[in-house]
Design a binder for these strands. Structure first.
Lengths: 113, 113
DNA sequence: TTTATATATTCGCATAAACGCATATTTCGT
DNA sequence: ACGAAATATGCGTTTATGCGAATATATAAA
């Protein structure tokens, strides 16, 4: 039997996941990690943001299990835990792209008449 | 040429999208609308929440273009604008499911030894 | 053990979000 | 024009978030 609260809990978990995605810097981090694992310093330089900011965003991603860590000596490497995260982001990007294309076509219609 | 700020803007748009998904009630709304278009009252009853709350969540989804409206007399019907939104949510749900399964297996290992 | 490097955390503040409640707006029927 | 039903919005309060600056922690090398 599927109770109302059960559905609510599932959605809460899913929302936590989405929350981790709901920040431009974290999205850039995920796409970067999709290319290859990177250290905190790598990401800090690549994104051009302060190191504490990078660590904070990584903590949010780590707490929710979107990224995993491994230590090599003094530096810590982060990697993506599941490529489906990028697939999901790409799907959303596709929706965005189609929407913008659609708007551009509308603008053309207006300008040509 | 792809500038840093350009990437930042894309990610900002994508994050706005994800923000709309980062709430359990809104996720339930989207899944409900994926079955069929519904009025505000439909959703209010189905979710068991106050009507103003439903309207406010719908506004957030509407402002970002995840849902679209059409009026029939005094009632307003909402529908999903793109099924890829559900595909993206399902992908995330799959990641969650595998993670939970993995944890359950680990727990079994622990209990059996 | 001291020092340097890499990473994480704390604090304070400004801003933004969620929610309940009341109320406004829109549309239709009479 | 008026009342009823459906939907949207304003307001005040509580709670959460993001960020900068400073600081703490951990590891390795000397």
């Amino acid at each position: 039997m599927i109770t109302q609260t059960f559905l609510q809990e599932i959605s809460q978990l899913e929302a936590d996941f989405c929350f981790a995605l709901a920040d431009p810097t974290r999205i850039l981090i995920l796409y970067s990690l999709n290319e290859a694992p990177r250290t905190v310093t790598d990401l800090t330089i690549e994104l051009g943001i302060p190191q504490p900011t990078t660590s904070r965003h990584l903590k949010i991603l780590r707490d929710r299990g979107l990224v995993a860590v491994s230590r090599q000596g003094v530096s810590i490497t982060y990697r993506l835990t599941d490529t489906r995260l990028i697939e999901a982001l790409d799907l959303l990007r596709g929706v965005m792209r189609d929407r913008i294309t659609h708007r551009a076509l509308l603008m053309n219609e207006i300008n040509n008449h």
